[in-house]
Every structure is written in C-alpha cells, then in structure tokens.
Amino acid sequence: MAWTKYQFCLAAMMLITGSINTLSAKWADGFRAEGCNGSQKHLFNHPFLQAVGMFLGEVSCLAVFYMILCHDRRRTEPQMAPVRKFNSFLFLPPALCDMTATSIMYIALNLTSASSFQMLRGAVVIFTGLLSVAFLGRRLITSQWVGIFLTICGLVVVGLADFVSGNHDEKHKLSQVLTGDLLIIVAQIIVAIQMVLEEKFVYKHDVHPLQAVGTEGMFGFIILSLLLIPMYYIPVGSFGGNPRGVLEDALDAFCQIGIKPLIFLALLGNILSIAFFNFAGISVTKEISATTRMVLDSLRTIVIWIVSLSVGWEHFHGLQILGFFILLLGAALYNGLHKLILAKLPWCKERMEEDFERNRLLTENKDSINVSPCN
C-alpha cells in the first residue's frame, strides 16, 4: 500500500529529528569557551545538564498531547479515547532508569564518535530480549535468538572498528573511546530494564504514548534538575571535565553558553529534536507500523555517520559499515522484519496458507491460531 503525503512527512520527520538529536549533542560537546570567573577555554563537557535538556524535550510531549486532545474534543465526533486515570508514580521507576541511562550516554558521547554511539545503542535488543524472557515470561522464537547473536557480533565489529581506526586523537585517547563504548552498552542494560518495567506496569493501563513520554520526562526533569545542586559540590577531579573538577558545574555551563551562543543553539536543537522525534516515532507506529519505525531508527545511523564524516568528526573505516549492517540484520530478525518480506514471496505465502488450513482443520475448536512457518 502506497504511503500518503502525511506518512512520508512523518517518516522524514522521524529520520531527520532523530539524526539531529545525536548530532546536536555532539556538536555542543565540541565547542570550547571560557567559563565563569575568567577560566581558560575548555570543552563544553556537561552531560547531566544536557540530559536535563533532553527531559525538557520529553516534557513538551505532554503539552503536545493536551493540545491534540483539546483539538479532538472540539470535533463533532471525537476520535481519541477518554483520558484514563492512572497513578503517575507508576512512571517513576522507568523515569529513574531513563535518567540514569541518558546521563551515562551523554558522558559516553563525550568520549566516543557519534556514529559508534548510535550503532552501539543497538545493544538494547540483547538485554531487552534476555530480560523479557527472565521477568516477563516471554518465549523468544529462533529468529529472535539469531537476531540477538548477530547483534552481539555487530557490537564486536563496531568496537573493533574503534580500536583500529583513527577516530581517537590527543583529546580522546583510545582508552577513552573504548570506555565510552562500554558506557553506552552499560546504558543499554538500564534502557532494557526501563522497557521491561514499562511493559509490566505501565502499558497495561492503556496510557497514550505521548502522555507516557511526557510524564516520564517530567519526573526525569524535576529529579535531575534538583540533583544538579549536590553535583555542583561533589569533587571528581579531571573526570568532571570542568575547571572546578566537580561532577557537574551547571554555572560553568551557563557561563560558556553566554560567551558562546552557538552552544545554546546546539542545546535548543537537541531539546526540540527529541520532542519532534518522540511525536514522529509514535505517529509512525500508529499510521504505518512498528517495523517501519525500527527501520527508520536504524537508517538515522547512516545519516549520523555521513554527517560526522563530512564535518571531520571522525575518519572512514570499512569495519563500521560491516558492523552497521550486522546490527541492522540482527535488529531486523529480532523485530520480525523478515516475516513481512518472506510473506510477500509466492512460495512462502502458499506455504503459510497451506499450514494455516491444516492447522485450522486440526484445531477447529480453538479461537485463534498462531502460525510462524518462516522464522
């Protein structure tokens, strides 16, 4: 079925804003500016403040939800379901996971390349699959286990590419790049826990996705904003990346932004892109399919990689392409994309119909039949 113009716009919005989200954060990390009290020029290394900005973008999804709801209620025949009452604190545990994972990933983005950052986020497939088996009682089919195995292989290839490539320099030594890669993978474990918590406790309440994202963002924004206060006094030495050597120096960040307004532009791009990306992603799932959303999410890695090469943020290495395609194949198998492709092949379609008819005759007393002959 051909896409409508609206569906094309949604797909383009998701691809573009998803790419801008990572690229704008990396752009901000590359700026050098003086800090407070006339300190020397230093890199804008403020991952926790950037995470606060990301949550601010998610909070805006809540505003979008109520705008859409208000517009729908003005119609003669409203199409949206009535807003269900739910306990907002159900979103607190996944919000804490989101806050922790996001902060770790912004720290990692300071250490590794933007393309490796995006590729290694594919590790979430591994941990989501394993945790869903352990805590949700889900049974993975053969193709999903193969997808997890391929994802592991892809991660190894991407890590090897960072090890042998020239994407590290005097500012980011090889040990820092590999540390950044490992931090991204650790963050994906936390993201997987977040997804399992959402599926187990949140989704059963039938909360609108935009409302869910906005509520989680509100918790993350409030908690992390308050945590910036003690972080200002926690000494961590050179790890902090700021003149005072503390965990997060928000005042130093604001001073740098005032001196270098382009940093504000980069942060604004990050905030707006995460808002539009969440809206577009949810709309793509609703208007087209979840599989299309997965494919678009994978394609933005290519956009990020091409832009990073064009502006000189990293150097070309063939292993990255190989790693990307292995990760893409693993994600496709895990999410069942191969079923849609095989179902369109005449021989597989005929086989599915024959199996369906045979199972219908054998299980005529059952209400539903689940047949997956093309795993």
Rank of each mutant, 00 (worst) to 15 (best):
120 L>Q: 05
147 G>I: 01
111 L>N: 00
116 S>P: 02
6 Y>G: 05
176 Q>N: 12
17 T>F: 00
243 P>K: 03
263 I>K: 03
135 F>S: 06
270 N>Q: 13
332 A>Q: 04
332 A>L: 11
14 M>D: 07
18 G>R: 01
163 F>Q: 08
271 I>W: 07
51 A>V: 01
144 Q>S: 08
294 M>Q: 07
309 L>A: 03
277 F>T: 05
176 Q>F: 08
111 L>Q: 02
115 S>E: 01
202 V>C: 04
225 S>F: 13
232 Y>I: 07
115 S>H: 01
300 R>Q: 14
120 L>E: 04
182 L>I: 10
311 V>F: 12
172 H>D: 05
339 K>P: 01
47 P>N: 11
65 F>R: 07
335 N>R: 10
221 F>W: 04
128 T>H: 08
37 N>T: 02
122 G>Y: 07
274 I>N: 08
282 I>S: 06
162 D>V: 03
56 L>H: 00
342 L>Y: 12
328 L>N: 05
225 S>M: 13
39 S>I: 09
212 A>M: 08
261 P>G: 13
360 R>I: 02
6 Y>E: 13
349 K>A: 06
348 C>F: 07
370 N>W: 13
121 R>M: 00
194 Q>G: 05
18 G>A: 05
161 A>C: 04
210 L>S: 03
89 F>D: 05
364 E>Y: 13
359 N>I: 09
54 M>Q: 10
291 T>P: 01
175 S>D: 14
31 F>P: 00
169 D>M: 13
337 L>E: 03
196 V>I: 13
311 V>D: 11
274 I>C: 09
136 L>P: 06
176 Q>C: 06
108 A>S: 15
21 N>Q: 13
343 A>Q: 15
261 P>Q: 15
237 G>D: 02
273 S>H: 10
348 C>L: 03
303 V>F: 10
139 R>W: 03
86 F>K: 11
62 L>M: 01
169 D>Y: 08
211 Q>M: 15
339 K>G: 05
243 P>S: 02
104 I>H: 00
362 L>K: 11
31 F>W: 04
110 N>L: 10
375 N>F: 11
40 Q>N: 10
220 G>V: 10
50 Q>W: 08
272 L>K: 11
17 T>R: 00
355 D>S: 09
205 H>A: 02
125 V>C: 12
173 K>Q: 15
310 S>M: 12
169 D>L: 11
2 A>D: 11
286 K>F: 03
197 L>D: 02
308 S>F: 07
59 V>M: 12
38 G>T: 12
174 L>N: 09
361 L>G: 14
132 S>L: 05
273 S>P: 07
194 Q>N: 12
